[in-house]
Design a protein around this nucleic acid. Structure first.
Lengths: 211, 211
DNA sequence: GGCCAACTGTACCGCGGGTACAGTAAATAA
DNA sequence: TTATTTACTGTACCCGCGGTACAGTTGGCC
């Protein structure tokens, strides 16, 4: 790079990942061409292969970065919720509200979940990447199970509901809500689904206020 | 076809759609090659283009068939549920149970939802196909909204819950549950999520049995 | 006997993933 | 000041695949 000054390698790498992420989320991994990514970033094909040995390495790095960021986001969000209320149930409900608001404020709606995208292109990826995806979802399960078990110590839940399933339900509602929002082209649907999940959690631990 | 006897055209077309469906669901549309489909079915490339003018036509026909089949399945399933119980709430709860059992009995787990698959490859498809996908989801919304409104006439629901959102929640839970099952590689997760949704519906109209 | 549906066969184009290296500009360490 | 490393560029090439074009063929039905 002669005039604008050569970027640091990590910058170019991140730029490639940024370009790849948005492209993968709206065309899928197979249809995301390396040529298109390098055109966006402004490097040559050789430059791409300097950073990633092949397209599979890009896929892996992309998912890794995505999962790390999601973890950080959850950490931050539920830590803030806990600052706002010391009771674990109410902190959790506040956290879900904050998340719904966050999703509502995304301009143009939620861009999509890489886990879901990869899931529907499983056979494009090697064992490593599939395992990474699985572990990502299991980590979400453990996070939410942790929150729910802490709540259950104080608020005895209805016996019929498994806390593990209720933890998984967050992932299901989030991924399902994103799909709903994208397909119907109504960005309000995702936050609405998150708030419905919140209602369900509330009713499991506090009852519905009837009967 | 010389020895086995020439198939009727609709058979070959259906065979192409079958091959395409399973391939799209595990590799994505872009990675599904025409060459692979014709190898499966046992025809030549020219034969493919006799049935579909291009790959986009295949995509459209595939989604159309999928949505029709889903509609039929829902029709049958909830009709049977209604035969088993005349009360709309209990019929609906029975229908959800039947669906959970159906999903549990799928050998190798649920193969995936084309709507979700297409959603994460939006830009591969033309306006027609995207609109078809949207209408499919909206049809599911109207179907479930119908069931829920009939229920609400008899069982006054909790005021905080929108019936439209609760109707959408089925789609979200189904699509999210499928993703969960596929990624974690545990076929029991989808039926569990459907039963959790069922619990939520129950608590909205009947309360939790506490408080 | 002729038409038509359902194909086959051949030939070709362009894009994109991927390989293989050799070369080079700028920053950094010795 | 020189050597090394980082972060690339440039060139050249292979192959699979989507897609086009179109002429020919085969079996069934009226």
């Amino acid at each position: 790079m002669s005039e604008a000054g050569r970027r640091k390698g990590t910058d170019t790498r991140e730029a490639l990942l940024d370009a790849a992420e948005s492209s993968v989320l709206d065309k899928g991994f197979a249809a995301t061409s390396i040529e298109e990514l390098i055109a966006d970033v402004g490097i040559t094909k050789s430059g791409f292969f300097y950073h990633f040995s092949d397209k599979g390495e890009l896929a892996k790095a992309l998912l890794q970065r995505y999962l790390d960021r999601e973890d950080s986001l959850f950490d931050e969000l539920f830590a803030r919720a806990r600052q706002l209320h010391d009771d674990p149930l109410h902190a959790f409900l506040i956290g879900l509200k904050l998340m719904a608001e966050l999703m509502e404020d995304l301009p143009g709606g939620h861009p999509g979940c890489l886990v879901a995208s990869y899931c529907y292109q499983e056979n494009m990826f090697n064992r490593d990447v599939r395992e990474l995806n699985r572990e990502g979802v299991l980590r979400w399960r453990e996070r939410f199970r942790g929150y729910l078990e802490e709540i259950a110590e104080i608020y005895p839940p209805r016996a019929e509901v498994s806390l593990e399933d209720l933890a998984d339900m967050f992932s299901a509602i989030a991924d399902g809500g994103i799909i709903l929002s994208k397909v119907v082209r109504d960005a309000t649907l995702l936050p609405k689904q998150l708030l419905l999940y919140r209602e369900f959690v509330r009713s499991v631990f506090l009852g519905t206020g009837r009967n």
